[in-house]
Simulated scan of single mutants.
Amino acid sequence: MPLHPDIAKALATLPPPPPGPLDPVAMRAAEEAQVPPVAGRLPLHAVEDATAGEVPVRIYTPDEAGTHGLLIYFHGGAFFLGSLDTHDHVARSLAKATGLKVVSVGYRRAPEHAFPAGLDDCYAVVRWAAANGESLGWDGTTLAVAGDSSGGTFAAAVAATAHDDGFDRITHQVLYYPSLDLDFDPGRYPSLRENAVGYGLETAGLKPFNAFYLDSGADPADPRVSPIKRADLGGLPPALIVTAEYDPMRDEGELYGRRLKDAGVEATVIRYPGANHGFVQHFSWIPDYHRVFEETAAFLRGAS
């Protein structure tokens, strides 16, 4: 189907990117300026800011139940954008739809913090959550990791790191249009060519947007950076991979799903027609796309 008309309308209003190199400080400020006030956000039973060790987290409790399963969420933003605030609405929607307590992670970002600082923070919070389950009100069942875009990179890498460490408590991984191959040669996947221009995230922008991360020491050949480079995907948690029809990174997510299945891992891949990269963050107010949260909840219930 064609690009969803509401998405097309929004993209048509975007100004051209400013000339010159990317300015992380200015781009973050512009992103934060779009965050709605707390009064306008989806209400939940409780939302509190805390720290997991030294890592800032925001904990979302959906209802009054005494215990819950846990979902650890990593926001997207090309490893240098995004925050607890810019993705607050995503975490709220996940908590509401799944009934899980969501722990959103304010990991360290490039370029101020070199690889693997952000990944280390994400993994540390998962281990912290498992170790502090009683105080968090964890019911001892679901311990899922989830992320969108570069947050999906972290979710996949955390699941693999945990497996390698013999930490077997992660029950699910949820990857929304994940960035799984940071080798951005446009010849690698058809979607890099088919969706190169006109859909928000453009293929030519992938290298400059990820340059802060790669220049900080993240090697695209390292499976912690490009999870699709991992030779053996066996033994990883069941995966839900959500892709968007008009996303340059669509095909790497779908290939990862096939490789997981080939390795004997339960993997569900859902392509959202008419959607572009970032639709969970930017366009989940569209009913056709808001159902991603219900489908996530169904996956988390069915793959446990």
Rank of each mutant, 00 (worst) to 15 (best):
L3N: 13
L3Y: 11
A12Q: 14
T13D: 11
L14R: 15
P17V: 14
P19M: 07
P19G: 13
D23S: 13
P24R: 03
V25M: 07
R28S: 05
R28G: 01
A30P: 09
E32G: 05
Q34A: 14
Q34D: 09
P36R: 07
G40V: 11
G40N: 13
R41G: 04
P43V: 06
L44D: 02
L44H: 09
L44E: 08
H45Q: 12
A46R: 15
V47S: 02
T51E: 11
G53F: 03
V57G: 04
R58V: 12
R58L: 09
Y60C: 05
E64T: 14
A65W: 07
L70K: 09
L70Q: 13
L71Q: 04
F74T: 10
H75F: 13
G77Y: 03
F79A: 13
L81Y: 07
L84E: 10
D85I: 11
T86E: 10
T86R: 10
H87Q: 14
H89L: 14
A91T: 15
R92K: 12
T98N: 04
G99R: 03
G99L: 00
G99D: 02
K101G: 06
V102A: 08
V102Y: 05
V103D: 04
R108L: 10
R109Q: 15
P111Y: 00
P111D: 04
H113M: 11
A117S: 10
A117D: 07
G118P: 02
G118N: 07
L119T: 01
L119R: 04
Y123R: 13
A124S: 09
V125F: 03
R127I: 00
A130Y: 13
A131E: 13
A131D: 11
A131Q: 07
E134M: 03
L143S: 03
A146S: 07
G151L: 01
G152E: 01
G152P: 05
A155F: 00
A159T: 06
A162E: 00
H163V: 14
H163P: 11
Q173I: 08
V174A: 01
L175Q: 04
Y176A: 04
Y176M: 08
Y177E: 11
S179A: 13
G187S: 13
Y189E: 00
P190E: 06
R193E: 12
A196T: 04
V197W: 06
Y199L: 06
L201N: 02
L201A: 03
L201G: 01
T203W: 00
T203Y: 01
F209T: 08
A211E: 14
G217E: 04
D219L: 05
V225P: 05
S226R: 03
D232P: 02
D232N: 12
L233Y: 08
G234H: 02
G235N: 08
P237L: 02
P238R: 09
P238N: 05
L240D: 00
D247I: 03
L255C: 05
L260D: 05
L260I: 11
K261F: 10
G264V: 14
E266Y: 14
E266N: 11
A267E: 09
A267V: 13
T268Y: 05
R271Y: 09
R271A: 08
P273R: 09
G274V: 15
H277I: 11
V280C: 04
H282T: 15
F283Y: 15
F283L: 08
P287L: 12
P287I: 15
Y289Q: 05
H290F: 05
R291L: 06
V292D: 00
F293V: 08
F293Q: 06
F293M: 01
T296N: 02
A298R: 15
R301E: 05
R301Y: 00
S304T: 15
